[in-house]
Measured scan of single mutants.
Amino acid sequence: GKMTGIVKWFNADKGFGFITPDDGSKDVFVHFSAIQNDGYKSSDEGQKVSFTIESGAKGPAAGNVTSL
C-alpha cells in the first residue's frame, strides 16, 4: 500500500536519494525514475512524499513517488 515519508536527501546529479518513512521503518532508496512529477524528476530534502515499496535488484526501493 501507499506510505508517506520525508525525502532525507536527493542527489539530482546521480539521480537517487533516500526517503525516511513516517512509520519509523528503515530509510528507503529512491531512484529518479520512480518520481511521478511531470518534467524534471528530482526531489528536495524535506519534501513530504507518498510512495509504494517495490522490490528492486538491490533490495527495497520506493515506487510511485508523489509530492504531497
Rank of each mutant, 00 (worst) to 15 (best):
G1T: 13
G1H: 12
G1A: 12
G1Y: 08
G1M: 11
K2V: 12
K2L: 12
K2G: 06
K2E: 07
M3Q: 09
M3A: 06
M3N: 05
M3D: 01
M3I: 10
M3Y: 10
T4F: 08
G5D: 01
G5L: 05
G5V: 05
G5R: 00
G5Y: 00
G5E: 01
G5F: 04
G5K: 00
G5Q: 00
G5H: 02
I6H: 08
I6T: 13
I6F: 10
I6Q: 07
I6S: 08
V7H: 01
V7A: 00
V7N: 02
V7T: 01
V7P: 01
K8N: 05
K8F: 06
K8V: 07
K8A: 06
K8L: 06
W9K: 01
W9G: 02
W9I: 03
W9S: 02
W9Y: 07
W9C: 10
W9F: 08
F10D: 02
F10A: 02
F10L: 04
F10M: 02
N11L: 04
A12T: 11
A12S: 11
A12R: 13
A12V: 12
A12Q: 12
A12I: 12
D13I: 13
D13Y: 12
K14N: 06
K14P: 02
K14C: 10
G15V: 03
G15W: 03
G15H: 04
G15L: 04
G15C: 09
F16K: 00
F16T: 01
F16Y: 14
F16D: 01
G17C: 05
G17R: 00
G17L: 05
F18C: 10
F18Q: 01
F18R: 00
I19F: 02
I19T: 00
T20Q: 10
T20W: 05
T20A: 09
T20V: 11
T20Y: 05
T20F: 04
T20K: 13
P21N: 04
P21L: 05
P21D: 01
D22H: 05
D22K: 02
D22L: 07
D22P: 01
D22T: 07
D22W: 04
D22Q: 03
D23W: 05
D23C: 08
D23P: 02
D23G: 06
D23A: 04
G24W: 05
G24M: 05
G24K: 04
G24D: 04
G24Q: 05
G24T: 02
S25G: 14
S25D: 07
K26F: 08
K26S: 11
K26R: 12
K26D: 11
D27S: 05
D27V: 06
D27G: 03
D27E: 07
D27W: 05
V28H: 01
V28E: 01
V28I: 12
V28T: 01
V28A: 00
F29G: 00
F29I: 03
F29Q: 01
F29N: 02
F29K: 02
F29R: 00
F29V: 01
V30E: 03
V30L: 14
V30H: 03
V30S: 00
V30D: 03
V30N: 01
H31C: 10
H31R: 05
H31P: 04
H31M: 04
F32P: 04
F32I: 14
F32R: 13
F32A: 13
F32T: 08
S33M: 07
S33A: 07
S33C: 10
S33N: 07
S33R: 06
S33E: 07
A34N: 09
A34V: 09
A34E: 09
A34Y: 05
A34C: 08
A34G: 08
I35G: 04
I35D: 04
I35V: 07
I35W: 15
Q36H: 10
Q36F: 11
Q36T: 11
Q36R: 08
Q36W: 10
Q36A: 11
Q36N: 12
N37I: 13
N37V: 12
N37R: 09
N37F: 14
N37M: 14
D38R: 09
D38W: 14
G39E: 09
G39H: 11
G39D: 11
G39R: 09
Y40G: 11
Y40P: 10
Y40H: 11
Y40V: 11
K41C: 14
K41T: 13
K41G: 12
K41R: 12
S42G: 11
S42I: 14
S42N: 10
S42A: 12
S42F: 15
S42K: 11
S43R: 09
S43F: 15
S43E: 07
S43L: 15
D44I: 15
D44G: 14
D44Y: 15
D44K: 15
E45S: 15
E45A: 15
E45T: 15
E45H: 14
E45F: 14
E45R: 15
G46H: 10
G46A: 07
G46I: 09
G46D: 05
Q47P: 05
Q47D: 11
Q47N: 10
Q47A: 12
Q47C: 14
Q47I: 11
K48P: 09
K48T: 06
K48S: 06
V49Y: 03
V49K: 00
V49G: 02
V49L: 03
S50T: 09
S50G: 05
S50P: 00
S50D: 04
S50F: 07
S50N: 04
F51T: 01
F51K: 02
F51D: 02
F51Y: 10
F51S: 01
T52Q: 07
T52S: 08
T52N: 07
T52G: 03
T52V: 11
T52W: 08
I53G: 02
I53L: 10
I53V: 10
I53P: 03
E54P: 00
E54V: 14
E54G: 06
E54S: 10
S55T: 13
S55Y: 15
G56M: 08
G56A: 08
G56Q: 10
G56V: 05
A57L: 13
A57W: 13
A57Q: 11
A57P: 14
A57G: 09
A57H: 11
A57E: 11
K58N: 11
K58F: 14
K58D: 07
K58R: 13
G59F: 07
G59K: 05
G59W: 07
P60I: 12
P60Y: 09
P60V: 11
A61S: 12
A61C: 14
A61F: 15
A61W: 15
A61P: 02
A61M: 15
A61R: 15
A62D: 01
A62N: 02
A62S: 02
A62R: 00
A62I: 03
A62C: 03
G63M: 14
G63I: 14
G63R: 15
G63F: 13
G63H: 13
G63A: 15
G63E: 08
G63D: 06
N64H: 09
N64C: 10
N64G: 07
N64L: 08
N64W: 09
N64D: 07
V65R: 00
V65F: 01
V65M: 03
V65W: 00
V65D: 02
V65G: 01
V65S: 03
V65L: 04
T66E: 10
T66Y: 06
T66W: 04
T66N: 07
T66L: 09
S67F: 15
S67L: 15
S67K: 14
S67V: 15
L68K: 05
L68H: 07
L68Y: 07
L68V: 10
L68T: 08
